[in-house]
Design a protein around this nucleic acid. Structure first.
Length: 297
DNA sequence: AACTACTCCTGGAGGC
DNA sequence: TGCCTCCAGGAGTAGT
């Protein structure tokens, strides 16, 4: 599912391709996925220029001319594909359906049309951004730029999981604030640290050799440090080497990343023990019972 | 504070 | 083949 690495890699592609382009049309095919603040609607996007594409946690923010901002959240299965004619200029988010299929299709809910930019032929192939979401949980939200800070504030997002500014000292403080929380739940809580989802939370705990059900308050400082390193390593690996490929809760065969998530019954790449699945808060959690023992020795 | 359960939704998998 | 049930999950909310 799109988590921080998927969203960040998509952001980079969009930020390389969209700024300077003007929106000339918006086709909202599924109204519930397009939200707007009072007094605004999708027609206000026509004639607006994209200035930059930013990210906070798993939220994408397109900063627009006219003091507007479009916030996107992909949730479970959202994806964005930017096409110019047949060519794909940017694509990311949930890998299903594949990025190279014919667009639009029945799960394409919003289409943004862009005008040609300077240097392109007078009538270039149409440039379109397709918002697709099989499960329809993702959304776009149009608001005035000045409203963005308040909007994000209301989400109570914790610090970015990969920010250099997230020091061990601060992370220890965050962990210490929820002493009874299970580690897995803590990592999924966007108000603690933002950006992790089910996949990378499992990977971070595996790298840190920590049992997902450990209570946060039971960690020694060295373990808190390992956990922070595990988070950075799991996210950093995905940002540098390509994102984890997991579909319907199963890791793709033949891949080595993710290492434990979606691999129940497979062998731990570190010690060879069998990877176990646990249901925690209604969510599947995968770990190695040998590398991540219940009690620290 | 921290847990569970439920909601939104579709598509894929497995059972029979 | 087809119908049924279950499962995947981010985040919000309600209840305990």
């Amino acid at each position: 599912m799109p988590e921080l690495p998927e969203v960040e890699l998509l952001r980079r592609e969009l930020d390389a391709a969209l700024p300077g382009r003007w929106i000339v049309g918006v086709d909202v095919r599924l109204p519930k996925v397009f939200r707007a603040d009072p007094g605004l609607d999708c027609r206000d996007l026509v004639g607006v220029e994209v200035r930059s594409v930013a990210r906070r946690g798993k939220h994408l923010m397109a900063h627009l001319s006219g003091d507007l901002c479009l916030v996107l959240h992909l949730r479970l299965s959202g994806q964005l594909v930017l096409r110019q004619g047949e060519a794909t200029l940017a694509a990311g988010g949930h890998p299903v359906p594949r990025f190279d299929v014919q667009l639009p299709h029945k799960s394409t809910h919003i289409i943004f049309d862009f005008a040609a930019v300077d240097g392109e032929p007078a009538s270039p192939a149409a440039t379109r951004l397709y918002f697709t979401d099989i499960r329809q949980f993702g959304f776009c939200h149009l608001m005035a730029s000045e409203r963005l800070a308040g909007y994000l504030e209301a989400k109570s997002l914790g610090p970015e999981a990969i920010a250099d500014s997230l020091t061990l000292e601060e992370f220890a403080r965050i962990v210490g604030r929820r002493p009874r929380a299970r580690l897995k739940s803590l990592l999924l809580d966007q108000s603690a640290v933002s950006g992790l989802g089910n996949i990378y939370a499992d990977e971070a705990l595996f790298l840190a050799r920590l049992y997902p059900q450990r209570q946060a308050g039971s960690l020694a400082l060295l373990e808190v440090s390992s956990l922070l390193e595990g988070i950075r390593a799991a996210l950093g690996y995905a940002l540098e080497n390509g994102v984890a490929h997991v579909v319907n809760g199963r890791a793709s065969p033949g891949t080595e990343f993710p290492r434990v998530h979606g691999r129940e019954g497979e062998l731990c790449p570190r010690c060879g023990a069998e990877i176990v699945r646990l249901r925690l808060g209604g969510r599947s959690t995968y770990f190695c019972p040998s590398c991540q023992p219940e009690r620290a020795d």
